[in-house]
Write a protein that binds this DNA or RNA. Structure first.
Lengths: 215, 215
DNA sequence: ACGTGTTCGTTAGAAGTTATAACCAAGCAG
DNA sequence: CTGCTTGGTTATAACTTCTAACGAACACGT
């Protein structure tokens, strides 16, 4: 392990502390949710008192934004490496579910209820479109003959979000419903709305995935 | 308007104040989300100072639970009256969407990210199953020939959640995917994940609904 | 090797929050 | 009219985020 050594010890220390802060923050979020994240508690767990933490993050919101960014980054990386390993759309779906179950609050931090005023910084929407690009590729690789719907026509005129991806409207449509259906089952499962209903959420998930791939 | 007059003026006043508290609480939630609901702010808006509010709700959580209950109640009532007016599954879907867009935070309060520890009291799950019953009825009314899936077989053995509804497994399955798909599109729309993508969420919603009804 | 200046941590404090305790006034009943 | 229940008040405790002021430790240029 050599180089990238233009790091002063000060900078090394700083990034390490920032990492530990995020570490502890994730622990809190995992057990109590993002709304219960307390900077004070994080600071005390690390062993420094309260306001010291503001040397590393300007505000609670900035820390949370960083966590959201990391979560997106993690999902994008996971999907990209799965895709590079030859995963098809079905495999990607299971990859997403596995990633979500690994840390439900991390998924919910991204796709859960946002605070009404919040606007993600630009680089985050960039990662989000990286994810979308992977999904679009996987959908495009799937040769399928869906009848053209009115919404397909609408998408032909509104494809900015595809970021120049050359897929035909039907593929764009497929990527969207892949997203919404996966999220529909997954978010209800993670939010606990299936608990006590008796059936196995995993089976519902794969059943829904099968339907998506069938038609 | 007569009777049910076994109400003492004290009780009348009490229920009226409780109603106003909820009123103001909804206003706050609608603009800033449930996590930003402040009992103090609500109390001041009503004109009484802070702790007076604890005569009416034992805690912030109790107030929020009551709001969740009211939200469920409102959705169930809306669906029931729509159903009574002859609405089919498609109409119910649009009813749900209309209800959600009317006050997005109200929908998200029910189906959004929960706090990890939270368990809804029994009477709320009761309302929830009332909603499910309406959906099951609407799905049962729709004669459809879906090929039996493995998940259908699983549902045949795990139908407790249907609360004794006599629908066959395929109908149970249809009700579930109706729920998850509607929620998938709707929650992403309400959370703002479609903003800036260019297409019209309403068209995606109806397209997804059409697919659901087609197969 | 020695100032100097940036950085990091501390404590103090302001302005919030939920929630409890103690107290007082007003309403309702015997 | 006496008293009890109820609804409001203020004071306080224990939190929260976040700013300010100060001190110490470190890195760097001379």
């Amino acid at each position: 392990m050599a180089e990238t050594d233009t790091e002063t010890p000060r900078e090394r220390y700083r990034t390490q502390v920032r990492a530990e802060i995020k570490e502890r923050a994730w622990e809190q979020i995992a057990t109590a949710g993002a709304s219960a994240l307390s900077l004070n508690a994080v600071a005390k767990q690390i062993g420094m008192s309260g306001p010291a933490l503001y040397r590393y993050y300007a505000s609670r919101d900035e820390l949370i934004t960083e966590l959201i960014r990391d979560a997106y980054r993690s999902l994008a990386d996971t999907l990209r490496s799965a895709s590079a390993a030859g995963a098809d759309l079905a495999a990607l779906a299971h990859t997403i579910r596995g990633w979500a179950l690994e840390d439900p609050q991390r998924y919910l931090l991204i796709y859960g209820t946002p605070v009404p005023g919040y606007h993600a910084p630009g680089d985050i929407t960039l990662i989000s479109s990286e994810i979308m690009a992977i999904l679009l590729d996987a959908c495009a690789a799937l040769a399928q003959d869906s009848p053209a719907t009115p919404f397909d026509a609408h998408l032909a005129d509104h494809r900015e979000w595809a970021n120049g991806h050359p897929a035909p409207p039907a593929v764009l449509h497929r990527a969207l419903i892949f997203w919404t259906r996966i999220h529909g089952v997954l978010s209800l499962e993670l939010a606990g709305h299936f608990t006590g209903m008796g059936f196995d959420p995993a089976l519902l998930f794969t059943a829904e995935l099968d339907r998506l791939l069938a038609h």
